[in-house]
């Protein structure tokens, strides 16, 4: 009996999330013009722009032209999800607040459906860009696709938890968002997006080894370039432990969010 009610609760939750996801896609990308294609086009335009800038400006990395492009596409592919999760989860509740009046819609539903949208759309846009660049001969096939996939899973897991924790804390006290804006800028060097960890001086490398995003970046790039390319610094045990802890933190915060609207 109890199992059945848990099961039907889960079923309702899945139904509600389906509705929320299509709702979200509709309001974010609308029914006009290219519509939901923007889901892919927006990040793709970002990849292309940054790749061009880097290809033109890069003088010191000793990477071949095509490796610069691969370096960028891999690096920003990972960072894109981090940026989207931190930014979009912070404002997840406000536009959906009125839907909470329907009692089957809960705060976790709203967060999970946004997480699913971001994970899928970021993956799709990375994947399509990669295919297009491959067909143009700009990138080669990954040396170790499984490692890339594993890194992407860690990326989704970490970014979802991190985004939910930030958003839940912000719900308690909106000073979090104000602190996060400058803090996120200071943290950019810690993301490991601008270079391989092996390029950085030893003192900074020690710091990067404890940065989850840098770990994920290194793992992802190791999958593309292969471990012969350079020494990659990542530790899957550290990531796994961190993600488990953050899942616990994110969920206990998430299920305690109080929305008092009168």
């Amino acid at each position: 009996m109890k199992n059945q009610s848990t099961f039907s609760g889960l079923k309702t939750q899945i139904e509600v999330m389906k509705v929320l996801i299509s709702r979200e896609v509709l309001t974010q990308y609308g029914r006009n013009g290219l519509g939901f294609l923007w889901l892919f086009l927006e990040p793709m335009s970002f990849f292309i722009g940054i790749s061009i800038i880097w290809s033109l400006l890069d003088r010191g990395s000793h990477l071949k032209q095509n490796d610069v492009i691969a370096f960028i596409v891999c690096g920003y592919g990972i960072i894109m999800l981090y940026r989207h999760c931190t930014a979009k989860l912070m404002n997840a509740i406000e536009p959906n607040r009125t839907l909470l009046f329907h009692k089957m819609v809960t705060v976790p539903d709203i967060f999970y459906s946004r997480v699913i949208i971001e994970c899928l759309s970021c993956f799709a846009s990375f994947f399509f860009t990669f295919i297009v660049f491959y067909l143009l001969g700009l990138v080669h096939l990954p040396e170790n696709p499984n490692l890339m996939l594993l890194a992407w899973i860690f990326n989704c897991w970490f970014c979802a938890c991190f985004g939910i924790i930030l958003a839940a804390l912000n719900q308690k006290n909106d000073i979090v968002e104000k602190i996060w804006h400058p803090l996120s800028y200071f943290m950019i060097p810690l993301l490991g997006v601008f270079g391989f960890v092996s390029w950085t001086p030893y003192k900074f490398r020690v710091v990067l080894e404890w940065s989850p995003m840098a770990n994920i970046e290194e793992m992802f790039r190791a999958g593309y370039f292969g471990t012969d390319f350079t020494h990659f610094y990542f530790n899957w045990k550290f990531l796994l432990l961190l993600c488990i802890l953050m899942t616990w933190a994110a969920n206990s915060l998430l299920y305690n969010i109080k929305i008092d609207s009168n």
């Binding site: 709702r23 009125t98 329907h102």
Partner: peptide, 17 residues
């Protein structure tokens, strides 16, 4: 649900949606 002017509808969606 509380049928009122504040809650229930999503304001950026059309009536039909």
């Amino acid at each position: 649900w509380p049928v009122g002017l504040v809650g229930g509808l999503h304001h950026r969606l059309t009536g039909k949606d």
